[in-house]
Design a protein around this nucleic acid. Structure first.
Lengths: 217, 217
DNA sequence: CGCTAGTACGGTACTAAGTACCGTAGCGAA
DNA sequence: TTCGCTACGGTACTTAGTACCGTACTAGCG
């Protein structure tokens, strides 16, 4: 098993945090448990909290790249999918995400770090949005509001999932993002062609459309 | 001048941070500059960062009290005035707020602390809003979105002011809060109408519908 | 007046995070 | 082999934060 030193440190840290608690675990213990020296820990992670958020930089780059591909007509879905990248990453982490959540709920220092991470995502979205809305009235403000809405909706769904595993997570996510974007302003009319009358979110509408289309000629 | 020890510590800390920078200033220096022992510092402030945010607890209580007085017909103004309480507090601080801002802009540890403080306000707003929207569909999510919008609008105006003093601050604030609430207040469309002309099989149409719906909020 | 209880303070000693620096083992390329 | 690079371990240090103890001051009460 050629696991890298960095990964061994992450595993060791999560194990010790889970068994002893965060505050009661020292960096020396983490390093020892991973079979390396203390210096090596700080070479891989800038602080004790950082070992809990080892992938945010990668995910940030991913989201940044996705948002950068947006065109004026695809911005809405770029925002959706940008947020989905973050959500999916948490899902991929699986149990680790849940163990970390338990820490963020109880340890102030970890919670602050988590908030800092969230803030970076929000600023990333806001930066792209600011570019998109540069011409509009109150562009910078609207950019920040939209970014805040997306992050808030994302976190809302994520927290629900972290608390108790639920099956319809993706649907919930689409619903929440839909509400966030819908609350934020009317979109220009599109030149689309199909139709549906009826209420509900995207998934509901799609279900209705599918039903109508498959039932009719 | 019967200034209390706590206040002397605050003044000493701000002075030293301004002259030497945050990291280069030790708690010992702050205590010595205030003419007290190191122990006394930690009796008054839980941490070195805390001395920079000495009044948040009071303001939080104030805002809490204001929001608690809201009736179903006055909620909008309660939100406005709740945010105004926070803004006014920063204005009262005057130069101290601006000196702190300089630190939050440059020192990561201070910035994280600031974000934690902001988060407490947002959660306070969200808590009240959640109570107000308890009956509504997606109440908790909408509560968080609204709280996020208010805090974001507030911070947007505040940051502008902290960067460069501007005269029409209050007007800007009302404008920003207005946009935030307006964006959120817009009643969600109860009927969604999408029109598709043209043929194609069911799956093709469904794909078009999905694309249209996800592209335009 | 003397006595007592509470409060604020100073000092000492300790733990642990984070930094700086030095030395060294491995490893691929010239 | 030798050079250069990278990763690692060890030591020593600074500083935030905690725990604990002793003491001065003050208010209240006999």
């Amino acid at each position: 098993m050629p696991t890298t030193t960095r990964e061994r440190l992450i595993v060791a840290a999560f194990d010790l945090f889970a068994s002893q608690g965060y505050d009661a675990t020292t960096v020396d213990q983490i390093a020892a448990h991973a079979g390396v020296g203390r210096t090596t820990f700080f070479r891989n992670f800038a602080s004790k909290e950082d070992v809990l958020f080892p992938h945010h930089d990668d995910v940030l780059r991913e989201v940044d790249a996705r948002l950068a591909t947006a065109t004026p007509t695809t911005r809405s879905s770029a925002l959706r999918e940008g947020a989905r990248i973050v959500l999916d990453h948490y899902l991929d982490e699986g149990d680790a995400a849940r163990r970390r959540y338990r820490l963020t709920s109880t340890v102030p220092a970890v919670r602050e770090r988590e908030m800092a991470a969230v803030h970076r995502y929000q600023r990333l979205f806001a930066r792209h949005l600011a570019g998109w809305l540069a011409e509009e009235e109150d562009g910078p403000l609207r950019a920040e509001l939209t970014a805040a809405a997306i992050i808030t909706a994302h976190n809302h769904v994520l927290r629900n999932w972290l608390r108790d595993d639920r099956a319809d997570l993706i649907e919930e996510f689409e619903h929440a993002i839909g509400i966030a974007l819908e609350m934020l302003g009317a979109s220009p009319p599109t030149r689309t062609t199909v139709v549906v009358t009826g209420g509900g979110d995207v998934e509901t509408i799609l279900r209705d459309v599918r039903e109508a289309l498959t039932r009719a000629p």
